[in-house]
Lab assay of single mutants.
Amino acid sequence: MQVTWGNVTVTFSNPEEAKKYAEKVARKLGGQVELHNGQFRIK
Rank of each mutant, 00 (worst) to 15 (best):
V8Y: 13
A26I: 03
L29C: 13
K20N: 10
F12K: 02
A26V: 04
L35R: 07
N7H: 10
P15D: 05
R41Y: 15
Q39T: 11
K20Y: 08
R27S: 08
Y21L: 05
A18Q: 01
L35H: 06
T4V: 15
G31C: 12
K20V: 11
A22Y: 02
E34W: 07
E23S: 07
E34L: 07
E17H: 11
N37Y: 04
T9L: 07
A22F: 03
G6S: 06
N37Q: 07
I42T: 01
R27K: 13
L35E: 09
E16H: 11
T9A: 05
E23Q: 10
G31E: 04
T11L: 10
E23M: 11
I42L: 03
R27P: 01
G31I: 06
T4D: 01
P15S: 12
F12D: 00
F40T: 01
G6L: 09
V8R: 09
I42R: 01
L29E: 03
K28C: 15
G30V: 04
A18D: 00
G38H: 15
Y21G: 00
M1L: 12
A18I: 02
N37P: 04
N37M: 06
N7Q: 09
Y21H: 03
T4I: 14
E17P: 02
N14M: 06
E23K: 08
G38E: 04
K19R: 15
T4W: 06
A18P: 00
W5G: 01
V10L: 12
Q32F: 14
A22L: 04
T9S: 07
E16Q: 11
N37H: 07
G6Q: 06
N7L: 07
G30W: 05
N37E: 10
K19Q: 10
A18F: 03
V10E: 04
E16G: 09
T9M: 07
V33K: 02
K20T: 10
E16A: 12
K43N: 10
S13H: 10
Q2V: 13
E17Y: 10
G31D: 02
E16K: 09
M1G: 06
P15Y: 15
H36R: 10
S13N: 12
K20R: 14
K20A: 14
Q39A: 12
Q32K: 13
G31S: 07
R27T: 08
S13C: 15
Q2R: 11
G6H: 09
G31P: 01
G31Q: 05
K24V: 10
N7G: 10
K19F: 14
L35C: 12
F40E: 01
Q2H: 08
V3H: 00
K24L: 13
F12Y: 03
F40I: 09
K20I: 12
K43C: 15
V33L: 07
G38Y: 04
Y21I: 03
G38T: 03
S13L: 10
R41F: 15
I42V: 09
K28S: 09
E16C: 15
V3G: 01
M1V: 14
V3D: 00
M1A: 10
T11A: 08
F40P: 01
G30C: 14
K20W: 11
V10M: 11
H36T: 10
N7V: 08
V3F: 06
R41K: 09
H36C: 15
S13Q: 11
L29I: 14
K24Q: 12
G30A: 05
L35S: 06
G6I: 04
T4F: 07
L35N: 06
A18K: 00
Y21P: 00
A22V: 04
L35F: 14
E16M: 12
K43S: 11
A18W: 03
V25N: 01
Y21E: 02
K24D: 12
K28H: 13
F40H: 03
S13P: 10
A26E: 00
E17I: 11
K28D: 09
K19I: 08
T4R: 12
T4P: 01
V25W: 11
A22I: 04
N14V: 06
L35D: 05
E16Y: 12
K20H: 10
Q39M: 10
K24W: 15
M1F: 15
E23W: 12
V33G: 00
E16V: 13
W5C: 14
K43R: 14
N7M: 08
A18V: 02
N37K: 07
S13R: 13
P15G: 09
F12I: 04
K24A: 14
K20D: 10
P15V: 13
E34H: 07
A26Q: 03
N37V: 03
V3P: 00
S13G: 09
Y21N: 01
K20S: 10
K19N: 04
G6Y: 09
I42Y: 02
I42F: 03
V33F: 05
R27M: 10
V3I: 04
V33H: 02
L29H: 06
N37F: 05
N37G: 08
R27Y: 08
N37A: 06
V8M: 11
E34G: 04
Y21T: 02
I42K: 01
R41S: 06
H36P: 00
A22Q: 00
W5S: 02
Y21W: 09
Q32I: 15
E17W: 09
Q32G: 05
G6A: 07
I42Q: 01
A18S: 02
E23T: 08
T11Q: 09
W5F: 09
A22K: 01
G38R: 05
P15H: 13
F12W: 03
E34F: 10
Q32E: 12
R27E: 10
Q2M: 11
L35Y: 14
R41L: 15
M1N: 08
N7Y: 09
V8T: 11
R27A: 12
N7P: 08
T4Y: 07
K43V: 15
K28A: 14
P15T: 13
P15F: 15
V8E: 05
V10A: 06
V10F: 09
A18C: 05
K19V: 06
E23D: 10
T9H: 05
L29K: 03
S13K: 13
K24H: 13
F40Y: 15
P15N: 08
Y21M: 04
W5T: 03
G6R: 07
R41V: 15
N14W: 05
W5D: 02
